[in-house]
Structure formats: C-alpha cells, structure tokens
Write a protein that binds this DNA or RNA. Structure first.
Length: 224
DNA sequence: CCATTAACTGACT
DNA sequence: AGTCAGTTAATGG
C-alpha cells in the first residue's frame, strides 16, 4: 500500500471514507519533502491545496511594517493553502522542521469533495470550525489586554497541540518565546517578561516541552 | 508608565 | 555555529 493512501486513511477528515475512493484520491495527489526553513507556499501559489503529513509548518503573513505575524502552527493532518477563490491572502507557509506534504490542485480538491456528500459535510464542518476559531482569535487580539490575549492563545494552542480540561491546559509542543510573541504581535522581550510573571504567580508551570496553564489560578488573579 | 528596538550575555544543542 | 532566553539601556507614545 502506498504511503499517501495510508496517510489519507488516518486523517480525521477522511476516516471512514471507503478505501476505494481514497485510493483514487491518493492517486491524484502529488507529494513533496520540504526541508526545514523551506517555504511550502508563497502568496503567488494560488492553485494548490496541501495536506501536512509529517513535520510542522508555520503559517504567517507580513504586516505593513514587514514584521512576521504567525497565524498558525500546523500539525500533521492539517489542510492548508490559499483556498479563497480569487484573491491571495498574502500568506506564507514555511516548514519549521523537515516536513512531508501531499498536494492537490484546487480544482481536483473541489472536484473530489463535491462528489461525496459525506466528505463535503466534513470539509464544511472543518472550515466552519476554523472560522469560528478565527473569529474568537480576532476578537481577542483586537480587544483583550496582553494577559487575556495570551490566555486565549494558550486555549487555542491547547486544542490543536495539547489538551484542555476544566482546570488546566497543556501544550505539548515546543513554542519559543519568539513564536508566541509573533502570534500576539508583541516583542520577544515582552513575551519573556509576561511568561516569567505568570510563572512567578504559579499560573504557568513548565516541564520540558509542556506548558501547563492553571485556569483556576488565572481566574483568581485576573477576573474581577 | 509601558512596550519597543538594539545589543550583549550565558546556556544549550 | 546557531538558537534561545534573560537582562539592560535608550527611545517614544
């Protein structure tokens, strides 16, 4: 069995879709190894949809001052690309570790999805969830002060990279201060100070790659 | 006052 | 050699 097919079967969005269909899809897909620091796509690349199989990819755009604003750290299983119909989102996708991506043209992607009602529904749910998450993120970035922006960010990252319960959220992957800062539009030094302050208050504890965030303590300190 | 940039430093890989 | 985090000094809104 080829690796693309194996991979499709283990993607949430394709789970339970008959193997025959997946075989057709995988035969249409291209694939590519992407080295660390290599761009997976640039704003000019409008015509492709990517599935991240392994490694990590950073989605970002450059603000008016040319500063990098990180929109997302994608983990294996992510679907990405400039899916909008006509205009570019001016986004870049850069591998932050060696990565492997599967590639479809947009036409192929929509062709495949539109032929299968079950798949259509899943893709729609996937993007509606993404939209809802994006709305929360925008709202937080636009109106919250820094501590609350950071709290929102950790919640979001926990859903994608860790786990969340009613007491704690945990992020399993390694996020540098630099990266976290670029997600909130603050400097690296400011992020360092914030994290250390929260650590002093025991709201954040770190062991290795895991960041734990104590929601109860956070609320105690910062809610009314 | 608060956050930013720039620069230097030590720890780590 | 390169990355990361902690610190300080100067600057600006």
């Amino acid at each position: 069995m080829n690796t693309k097919l194996w991979y499709l079967k283990h993607l949430d969005i394709f789970s339970g879709i008959p193997e025959k269909k997946l075989a057709v899809i995988s035969s249409l897909m291209g694939s590519r190894n992407v080295g660390k620091r290599e761009l997976v796509f640039q704003p000019e690349d409008l015509n492709k949809v990517y599935l991240l199989k392994s490694g990590s990819v950073e989605l970002y755009h450059l603000n008016s001052e040319g500063k990098k604003v990180i929109l997302d750290q994608l983990e294996p299983g992510s679907i990405f690309g400039d899916l909008a119909i006509s205009e570019s989102t001016e986004n870049f996708a850069e591998a932050t570790s060696d990565a492997f991506v599967c590639i479809l043209t947009k036409d192929q992607f929509f062709e495949i999805v539109s032929k299968d009602p079950e798949l259509s529904t899943r893709v729609m749910k996937f993007f509606l969830n993404k939209l809802s998450e994006t709305e929360r993120t925008i709202s937080s970035l636009a109106t919250d002060n820094l501590v609350f922006k950071f709290s929102s960010l950790l919640h979001r990252l926990a859903k994608n990279h860790g786990e969340e319960n009613e007491i704690k959220i945990e992020i399993k992957e390694k996020f540098t201060h630099e990266t976290l800062a670029a997600m909130l539009g603050v400097s690296r030094q400011t992020m360092t100070k914030l994290i250390n302050a929260l650590e002093k208050q025991k709201i954040i504890t770190r062991s290795g790659k895991i960041i734990s965030f104590d929601k109860v303590k956070f609320d105690d300190h910062y809610l009314s």
